[in-house]
Design a protein around this nucleic acid. Structure first.
Lengths: 231, 231
DNA sequence: ACCAGGACTTGATTTGCGTCAACGACGCGT
DNA sequence: ACGCGTCGTTGACGCAAATCAAGTCCTGGT
């Protein structure tokens, strides 16, 4: 018999809602959380317009969130890694505002909004962490806005790689070498660039000796220079 | 003797924290809120890096928020109108993450973070509204990201005007005619376009009969066509 | 009322990146 | 193991918007 998964023994707990909760408080939180069935690559977790009943926490794998514009084409607004929470943008009116789709096989936790609200009344730490996480997302989103608005294609891509790298590091993974679970087209869409430009700049960065790319695998050979390029 | 300003008689209450609070609850909230001295044009309310002690609510006037990049140049990330709340991006670590500067003479309310947290433990409606407001900002920011990434200069500017127009309408002001408190350079910076492009597209929109522009004053003569251009 | 400095407009030129096109390389399903 | 579809790379070309430049119009301060 395999041991069940609980917040108490989850390696992502420090990035997730239990952050700074006591063991007893974490256990309380754990009781309202359901483990979601694994989501296969390309499967959709959330459709835009659906009522918001749960927040989701990523346990493993990765996903992308996107909206559809009037012509029906994707606009990617986020990539989610383990430890990330999904669904905050729907709190405004109880409806999800975007689609969320698995980029690979993905494990999730399901957190009922209503229980979360009730619990946050009695746990100041949970309240604080909720605000922290949303504030962090808000900050990331606004920083990205500034980055995209005022930087060249090379700077945008360098910035994207640096940000990914530091997110992997926060999660206890290598910041030097990682796998891109999204396609080049996804990256381009997210950064407001064409696939061709992403491809060209990756080979250029490789020729400059800043990174080494092999299909989905990226190794950052000179982190300092990459960070300088991200500017 | 002039009547004092309170949340109870503030015309922005429905956009602000008191939304959906009972009169008694609003009064409770009111007791922890201070009215800030008027801020003159170009004065700075918040410096990046400062400890976050208060949230601010705009009573009248307007402000811009921006970060400075490594070369010290401004990256505008937000314009704030009456009813808006300022400071959420600092909740993550108790530090403001951007500068906020008045675009004109501006009146503000000052809300101590700590009192707000305490109060939100006992008022579910306040808790909900806090999350709603942050969620709304998050959504707006991500929508803007999609817009800027995938649209032409004309679409961006049209979108900017439509968004401003609807924000004025929410505030009980005319959606057809309003004053731009920010400069063309500010708009360009915000939208990732040059001043010249903003200027050219404004005259072009005017020649097309969609808007009438006179210095800072904008009249939207054909809202439908403008909305279509925003796509 | 005037002057100075910033804000705005308009035109000429350049350029970074998108688009189009062709091809090569994976990887998944049979 | 093979073939087909998606993904990725590379090159040629065109265009939207940046940059450069010059001039006019506001605005606020004396």
């Amino acid at each position: 018999m395999t041991s069940h998964i609980h917040c108490q023994n989850c390696s992502m707990a420090t990035l997730c809602l239990p952050y700074q909760l006591s063991p007893e408080q974490t256990e309380k939180l754990d009781t309202v959380i359901q483990r979601h069935r694994p989501l296969q690559k390309r499967n959709i977790l959330i459709n835009s317009g659906e009522p918001l009943k749960f927040l989701y926490a990523v346990r493993s794998g990765s996903l992308k969130s996107y909206t559809l514009d009037s012509q029906g084409s994707e606009q990617i607004i986020d990539f989610h890694l383990p430890g990330d929470l999904i669904g905050f943008d729907g709190l405004i009116d109880g409806q999800h505002r975007s689609y969320t789709q698995a980029l690979e096989t993905t494990m999730l936790c399901e957190i009922p909004i209503q229980s979360l609200d009730q619990l946050s009344a009695e746990l100041p730490g949970l309240r604080k962490q909720l605000l922290r996480v949303m504030s962090g997302e808000l900050h990331a989103s606004k920083t990205l806005l500034g980055t995209l608005n005022h930087h060249t294609a090379q700077q945008r891509l360098a910035n994207f790689l640096v940000t990914l790298s530091s997110r992997f590091q926060q999660r206890g993974l290598s910041s030097r070498e990682f796998r891109l679970s999204m396609t080049r087209a996804d990256i381009g869409n997210y950064l407001g660039l064409s696939v061709e430009t992403i491809s060209r700049i990756l080979t250029q960065l490789q020729n400059d000796g800043v990174v080494a790319v092999q299909n989905k695998l990226v190794a950052i050979t000179e982190p300092e220079r990459l960070r300088a390029l991200a500017s």
